[in-house]
Design a protein around this nucleic acid. Structure first.
Lengths: 157, 157
DNA sequence: ATCAATGCAAATAATTTGCAAAAAG
DNA sequence: CTTTTTGCAAATTATTTGCATTGAT
């Protein structure tokens, strides 16, 4: 996430807290900073680790209590890949409609966007009498081709 | 699911068991019959109930142990809607590429298929260097329009 | 001061698993 | 008979929650 947008996002979150009469504690600051410091997907547990580098007093409970604020605010996107834990995506604020391809071999996740796709989804949704709120496309595949390019180690990372 | 296809699916599952040297127990029969008796999505717990109508001795553990067989065989599709339980879809064998729209108000689930969508997904996936294995599109919306038609009671069922 | 937010540890809830008994082939 | 499958109950594991304490405003 480019520096400028990162700043803007941070601002937005602070305003969000204010609006809701929520307090800016050092733990929340640490968690938000951790989120802003990465481009990669993370789990709650990983966020805990990341946040503790900013403030070692952050507890697991606080991470779990802060995560809903981040998703509500739209800074991160919660994803469920059928595992027993959830994955959070910090690239959501800038690209709210992006989709995911997951390699079944190495769990690599590739993101992509497509206007055509968005358009088609909107069309179908309307035809079925719905107003679209959000959308999540997950494609599972094998990255055989990527392997040839040396990008997939073909083992679960 | 039309009677004919139901039979065919049942056959297929029996063959599947045979291939894997798995035994056809009365419990597995009950579970499979329960799956074949419905068109609707169900949870593990609901399948347990359904199966017990065929054979009251079916246990929760056996349901959980049989579900992977059904998904492996492709008779049902496992879906994760971000709740703390998984949902299984018995319409998958006939329509492996179908997608879901969920109403955020009443949790109503509508299924749909689209060749255009499939095609577009394939195109994109290939362009990114993947071979597509499976795909899952979930759209969340509000069924405002459906409400006008009286189809949405606007409360969680 | 006041009230929200925290850490801790206990609770929750879906799913998984070890094991001895039962049933399929 | 042999090997798989079962039910039960205990274990697992991510997430949630109650509560006394701490900290932001």
């Amino acid at each position: 996430m480019p520096q400028v947008e990162r700043q803007a996002a941070r601002e937005r979150f602070l305003q969000f807290l204010e609006q809701k009469n929520l307090r800016l504690t050092s733990q929340r600051k640490a968690i938000v900073d951790a989120v802003f410091a990465t481009d990669r997907h993370f789990t709650a547990e990983q966020l805990l680790e990341m946040a503790r580098k900013h403030d070692p007093t952050v507890s697991r409970a606080t991470v779990y209590r802060t995560l809903p604020l981040l998703t509500e605010n739209g800074l991160v996107h919660e994803m469920d890949f059928g595992k027993d834990y959830k994955v959070y995506d910090p690239n959501y604020a800038e690209h709210p409609n992006h989709n995911h391809i997951i390699c079944g071999d190495c769990d690599k996740i590739v993101e992509f966007e497509s206007d055509k796709l968005d358009q088609l989804e909107n069309e179908i949704t309307h035809r079925l009498g719905f107003a679209i709120k959000s959308q999540q496309l997950r494609i599972t595949g094998s990255c055989d081709e990527l392997k040839k390019l040396g990008a997939c180690r073909n083992k679960h990372s």
